[in-house]
């Protein structure tokens, strides 16, 4: 684990996760900075308005986490994630985007993201996502999970990616995620440990990210 910012506050010494935020729109960046710092556990150490700026900021600030949109100007968010791996020891990346298309989600995970959250979720979901990803757990927000669930059950992909090729436990997991259940709740409902929930989610995302783009019926 890289060094984190240590703050001496009323609660004694505590570490804050260092985050670089990337979004094309300044109001989004300002708002995320305000929100993240309001959560208490995070410190925004850089802002980027383009993919190129994100690479620079990541190299300079060496953050614990990158919070980025899937689409960025100049160099796209997903392409940037791929290149990041060459630039710095891979920081954890959480994608925050209005795009909920499973194909883009697939690309994001293939590029190295470990979490994906829709801009249409609420702040409580963002808080959960940050908590999970900073601790090294994967994350899928309910709306994104819902998209993947529909995708997995659709026509040709359903046959390829769907019921037959997804173990039942992972399909169950996806259903719970789509309903917005927490990992703890899912673990209890499925009679699993938290680590197992994380394992199955990663395995599911691995299946998704290994799919070839041509297996998407929309292409």
């Amino acid at each position: 684990m890289r060094e984190s910012v240590i703050l001496r506050g009323e609660g004694g010494v505590r570490a804050r996760w260092r985050i670089v935020v990337a979004d094309a729109h300044r109001l989004w960046r300002h708002t995320l900075r305000k929100v993240l710092e309001g959560f208490g556990a995070y410190c925004v150490v850089g802002e980027a308005a383009s993919g190129e700026a994100l690479l620079e900021q990541a190299e300079r600030a060496r953050p614990d986490l990158i919070l980025t949109d899937a689409i960025l100007p100049v160099l796209d968010g997903i392409e940037t994630l791929k290149r990041l791996r060459d630039v710095v020891p891979v920081p954890r990346a959480l994608v925050l985007s209005e795009i909920e298309d499973p194909e883009v989600v697939r690309e994001a995970f293939a590029a190295g993201a470990i979490g994906y959250i829709s801009k249409c979720e609420d702040l409580a979901v963002l808080r959960r996502a940050l908590g999970a990803v900073c601790r090294g757990f994967s994350f899928l927000s309910p709306r994104v999970a819902r998209g993947i669930l529909e995708f997995a059950q659709e026509g040709a992909v359903g046959r390829r990616f769907g019921r037959k090729s997804i173990p039942l436990v992972e399909l169950e997991l996806l259903r719970f995620l789509a309903k917005g259940w927490s990992d703890k709740g899912i673990a209890a409902a499925l009679g699993l440990g938290l680590e197992a929930v994380n394992y199955y989610r990663l395995d599911l995302l691995r299946r998704l990210s290994q799919m070839t783009p041509t297996s998407n019926p929309r292409l």
Binding site: L32, K34, V35, D122, L123
Partner: peptide, 13 residues
């Protein structure tokens, strides 16, 4: 705004 995260964040601001 349909982007809830932005909407709730703007409320805080």
């Amino acid at each position: 705004d349909d982007h809830t995260i932005l909407r709730q964040g703007l409320r805080k601001i």
